[in-house]
Design a protein around this nucleic acid. Structure first.
Lengths: 338, 338
DNA sequence: AATTGCGTGTGAAACCTTTCATTCCGGGAA
DNA sequence: TTCCCGGAATGAAAGGTTTCACACGCAATT
């Protein structure tokens, strides 16, 4: 266990001042090639490693970006994170991944953690619709970009048109002849769910179908287990009145529903068609590949990170923007062939 | 945008010294209740938030733990991370999740990042068998626990008996009457894959079956896409010589293979049985639920974090340990009923 | 009355880097 | 020869927290 060397040690070893050592690392062009070489040699001779804490203290700001997502178990968010990370790394920033698990307390715990770290910025899919902690962070000068949620004029956000996504899904099912459709999703506190449902309703009305063509089945969460139990309920319905198609608020739910169908020997799409949402990799890999509303997951992360960095580097010139992507329907076996 | 308050501001506001403010936060029992109240009031009046960078600088060590995994897109690792995070949070430590994507360069990038941060410790599933960067970190006093990999006597590790896992899978398939089995997995640079294969071979020998009862089909990666393409190869084999069962080195591969089987109208398990590995949630949720070798994912993370924290808090008394969990076969539909 | 001890509180040093005003030096211009 | 200029290097200050040796005041003990 060796005591780590610091700039002073390096400076002494190379016979220069600490300022010069710092310049070699941060503005090498200001140092003559000869001394630069000498300093670099000393750095590697002593095994010097910069102390990030001291840098941050001096800078008053860290190089850490917090990405607060709803559920890290959902591949949608890991893909999004992967996209965000690409851009972050390009700028020498480090990503801290935080999963709030739909829990307001966990969320605020992470936010105060990030505040203590003087985070460079934060990307967040907030649990609740309004969030004072976020506003507080912003007042202190920390850029915050909302992800998968549309912000007002005074804040950046990156989202996908969830309403349109709902319409695409229902349009498709209606065009395949379905007239009794179930919407599986929840809790309704989550904005995306509400929007997707609204889109679904709009599409039904546009097709001149009655409102009760859509049965809303609210789930307590957006995971596989919730999908399974809702799938069981659907199976239990008497065949005559049973929906012929299910639109799920995300792919995890859809996979759960699909599993129950198969377990009960109901044919997908023969007896029941299924449309998911997100188009995670597992959707295509399901044994009955899922028709799903694709969101540009990685791009979402990329765009959000771009906005964040832009605001972080030039807060004054920065214009808040609300980027909205368009979803896209990916048709696979779970809704059959025309 | 308000200039953030510091301990000095708080001290002035409360009419005490900075040392007392620090004591209120870190050793409240040494401060009389009256002053404690006063200081706390000032803290919230000024909206004071600790500066983590300054704490770290002073402490010479951060409260950050790096978890370097092979693939964050694999739910096995996110579950492991979730387990690790529970313990970390309990000790006031923050987890940074890093995905090396099987790439040595990305891995070393993250390691030097963590070194600059003076990480409290590191949990890592290393890409290669040996790793000088890790040894360097350890010489500098950073605790490192190997995850999903067995270390020598001089280092902590937490792993699952992969050889046994391989044996369980093959024993099961043999007992179901299979005599032509394919092993799908790779690349062979990954230790876990090699061990699982070794276990498979051992089980065959123990069952007095010839070595060529097992066909090894090496994949370039452990993801769904690789499984799909290998599945296509299996389907393309002439039916008479085709294996009647496939043992996959992880569930992602198994899901890929399963999808190809279904697409080609081969019955699972009728025509081909499939055994996966890891027992991720998607394994149970697959339309043909997968038989899989379960690893205690969350527990793995928990145990690793415990060892790390133990070493980090009391490096001198710490005894290196190599914890090995036992895997467990979970039988589902993909290998049929006896 | 002097001493001891204890519970509180103090204040300066240390942690390490970056920045910036300043100094130094050699060469070209006047 | 003197002056000026620009490139290169310097060195001290600043950033916020924690720690620790020390001081203070009061009560109990001798």
């Amino acid at each position: 266990m060796i005591e780590p060397a610091n700039v002073l040690d390096v400076a002494a070893h190379a016979g220069v001042s600490v300022g010069t050592v710092s310049n070699v690392m941060n503005r090498p062009e200001r140092v003559s090639p000869a001394t630069r070489e000498r300093v670099l040699a000393s750095i590697s001779a002593l095994g010097y490693v910069r102390n990030e804490a001291a840098r941050q203290l001096r800078a008053g700001k860290s190089r850490t970006i917090g990405l607060v997502v709803l559920d890290i178990g959902n591949p949608f968010f890991t893909d999004l994170a992967a996209g965000a990370e690409v851009t972050a790394t390009k700028h020498g920033l480090t990503l801290i991944l935080c999963s709030s698990n739909d829990d307001v307390h966990r969320e605020s715990h992470y936010l105060s953690l990030l505040q203590e770290q003087r985070a460079f910025g934060i990307l967040i899919t907030p649990v609740a619709r309004t969030n004072t902690a976020i506003q507080q962070l912003r007042r202190r000068g920390t850029p915050v970009v909302l992800v998968d949620r549309t912000a007002g004029r005074r804040q950046c956000s990156v989202s996908v048109n969830d309403r349109l996504g709902g319409e695409l899904a229902i349009d498709h099912l209606v065009s395949r002849g379905h007239r009794r459709i179930a919407f599986v999703g929840g809790p309704m506190s989550i904005n995306q769910v509400v929007e997707r449902l609204a889109g679904a309703r709009a599409a039904l009305r546009a097709a001149d179908l009655p409102d009760d063509a859509l049965t809303v089945m609210e789930t307590p969460a957006l995971n596989v287990a919730a999908g399974r139990s809702m799938g069981a309920e659907i199976v239990a319905l008497p065949a005559p009145g049973r929906p012929t198609a299910v639109f799920c608020a995300n792919d995890l739910l859809a996979l759960g529903v699909l599993q129950e169908m198969t377990r009960s020997r109901l044919q997908v799409p023969g007896d029941i068609a299924i449309v998911g949402y997100d188009d995670i990799d597992f959707a295509a890999a399901a044994a009955v590949p899922l028709t799903s509303v694709r969101q540009p997951r990685a791009q979402l992360g990329l765009a959000a990170m771009d906005l964040l960095i832009e605001e972080g580097l030039a807060p004054d010139e920065h214009q808040h923007r609300q980027v909205v992507f368009e979803p896209e329907l990916v048709i696979r076996d779970s809704t059959g062939h025309p």
